[in-house]
């Protein structure tokens, strides 16, 4: 139960200018080496390497006078992920505290582990785990404190490689003509002079006969769904999820084209369903297939499977 009738006042307890601590020969040696950008531990009487060095080992026995350079590669032991740093924390974005054992040492020290830039509140990244290999990030100006190591960070395991190539692509004659037709609201194709098949869109050649095609044919925007997929992965071109991408055999064409089907629940689309092209408003047309927004069902009986089975 809070009491509001008690007076309050702010207060700090801080020794002006900070304490002056002597470090002794062992820690002093460590910090001196640290200032020079090196990590050292100290040999214990039992032969191990104590890091960071102090004058005594875990059993209280004095350590030897032998300093051993360790690291810079280190291994993370246990760790704590800080999704929202507190004001005194060394970083103002998420990071981890971790026990860090340099190669060549038998004990660990607690320090800061910087895994990169994360939004405040971020969950622990998958890369954070015991056994993670890290190295110290040294401050440029060092004074001989544990903060001469700004933090530890993982070794370089990947580089970011922007790769970009720019093009000015040319559609070629056949596709330019086809898209030119689409820009006028017409769907054009070619009839092969050898096999007589009508290709929509045309390629300017027959892939079966390997001959050029030139006889232009216009087909209507109506056709039949031969087969289709119900897509549950969002796509900016589709009206909603799930959406249907279908092979539509336009009337008069001998090859189906892939298009969106909408205006009907995805679960009701059928093989053999009759559809028609839905064009965008004329003022939005360009030389692009996007002029046809998608196909929608028309009120006609389905085409029997036998009549489309050869177009699958």
């Amino acid at each position: 139960m809070p009491r509001s009738n008690s007076l309050t006042a702010d207060h700090s307890l801080a020794f002006p200018g900070g304490y002056t601590r002597s470090v002794g020969p062992v820690i002093g040696r460590f910090l001196t080496e640290l200032r020079d950008g090196r990590l050292v531990g100290v040999r214990t009487a039992a032969g191990g390497v104590l890091f960071p060095p102090v004058e005594y080992d875990a059993d209280g026995e004095p350590v030897t006078e032998e300093f051993v350079e360790v690291g810079p590669d280190c291994t993370v032991g246990t760790y704590a992920w800080v999704p929202r740093p507190r004001p005194d924390h060394p970083l103002d974005r998420p990071f981890a505290w971790a026990l860090i054992t340099p190669d060549g040492a038998d004990t660990a020290m607690l320090h800061v582990l910087d895994l990169g830039v994360f939004d405040l509140g971020a969950k622990p990244p998958k890369t954070l785990r015991a056994g993670l290999r890290v190295r110290p990030k040294w401050r440029a100006e060092r004074t001989g404190t544990i903060g001469d190591i700004e933090c530890f960070r993982p070794g370089v395991t990947a580089i970011n490689a922007p790769v970009r190539a720019d093009y000015r692509l040319s559609a070629g004659q056949a596709l330019s003509r086809f898209l030119g037709g689409i820009a006028e609201g017409r769907i054009l194709g070619h009839r092969c002079g050898v096999c007589g098949k009508v290709y929509v869109p045309m390629k300017g050649m027959c892939p079966v006969d390997g001959v050029p095609t030139t006889e232009e044919v216009e087909v209507p925007g109506t056709g039949t769904v031969t087969t289709f997929a119900v897509n549950n992965i969002p796509d900016p071109r589709a009206p909603e999820v799930p959406f249907v991408s279908a092979y539509v055999l336009l009337d008069g064409a001998d090859i189906a084209m892939v298009a969106l089907v909408a205006g009907i629940p995805a679960g009701e689309v059928r093989m053999g369903m009759r559809v028609r092209a839905v064009w965008r408003p004329r003022e939005e047309w360009g030389q692009t297939m996007a002029n046809i927004r998608w196909f929608e069902p028309v009120d006609e009986p389905d085409v029997p499977f036998d009549e489309i089975k050869d177009y699958l």
């Binding site: 596709l175 898209l179 071109r237 991408s245 084209m257 298009a259 692009t288 297939m289």
Partner: peptide, 9 residues
């Protein structure tokens, strides 16, 4: 790519 004649899936 730009300039495609049909839906790319």
């Amino acid at each position: 790519p730009p300039l495609t004649p049909s839906l790319v899936v």
